[in-house]
Design a binder for these strands. Structure first.
Lengths: 163, 163
DNA sequence: CGAAATACTGTGCAACCTGTCCAACATCGG
DNA sequence: CCGATGTTGGACAGGTTGCACAGTATTTCG
């Protein structure tokens, strides 16, 4: 990751439709350089994919909520992996992580409405491996998910301010 | 969104590098159909972008945490928008939402290490509009962020189980 | 410092893909 | 039955890709 990689990522993030050739023109470098950089960024794992980004809202799921789940401690009937597999089978669960705290998990779910959210939560709680849960509903998004500003800190370390 | 749209999204999610022509071959439809479908999916907002997906981990930020922020109620010195703008200026804040509860927000942040997380949190708390905060650290990811299973429920409603 | 390794450039080529038309046919709802 | 809409197969020019090569810069390391 140097400044050219950063500009390359910015370029493709802003204008994903452009190809390698157009990118090389805009960056003022040879086409082969752009190809090599992209290959390296993909190999090193910085770029994980080029797939289409889907909007749950446009798919009819405008309600987002975060569930904090307390997991049963007994290994035979609980465990994070059990719950993880359970959650992975529910389409409305967009992501789930284990977090610090007494055997807890945090899951992001979406639903068709506030009413529909109840159905989703019920489905999440279907497993006996979950002891308790609490829900917060996302009302608005102040900062939409983004990684680009972070990528800039890698090439411009002065952006990493120390409070 | 019908079954063909679903297969189209699956196809491009699995193999983003293929073009319209190759997609039409694999789906057994005319090229113009694929182009028309993609245009419509983009226009309707289901597909929001084709940009490269970046891995914070590969960029050197392997630690993810969720901050719950309590916002000061006085309009002059607090407010969600004030905090939202503040958070948006911090690269390590990957997303932020207002949530149900007493004037709270939820923010996802990343850091270079657990130690570095303290710096990020300090920077988040630099504004006087935030009264209090609590942090949970994500230890592992059971379900990585995904929307594809959700897209399937739109074309295959029986996947939407009722508990 | 000097040499090796690595990266970048500019170029060329064949093969392929895209964007954009078009006429004809199929499907669906009224 | 009609119209609206979507699909098909085809065509075209122009652009793009993947690959290769030699030559030149730049970096790395003894």
């Amino acid at each position: 990751m140097d400044a050219l990689d950063g500009r390359l990522i910015d370029l493709f993030a802003t204008d994903p439709r452009i190809g390698v050739l157009e990118a090389s023109r805009r960056l003022g470098v040879a086409r082969g350089t752009v190809q090599a950089r992209l290959d390296k960024l993909a190999t090193s794992g910085v770029i994980t994919g080029w797939g289409p980004e889907l909007s749950p809202e446009a798919l009819g799921y405008p309600v987002t909520a975060f569930l904090t789940l307390e997991i049963r401690q007994e290994p035979s009937r609980g465990g994070h992996d059990t719950v993880g597999a359970h959650l992975a089978a529910i389409p409305e669960v967009l992501e789930a992580h284990t977090i610090t705290g007494a055997g807890d998990m945090l899951a992001r779910v979406v639903a068709r409405s506030n009413t529909d959210l109840q159905r989703v939560i019920d489905r999440v709680l279907e497993t006996s491996a979950i002891v308790r849960s609490s829900t917060v509903i996302a009302l608005a998004t102040q900062v939409p998910y983004r990684v680009r500003p972070l990528a800039r800190t890698v090439t411009d370390p002065q952006l990493t301010q120390h409070g």
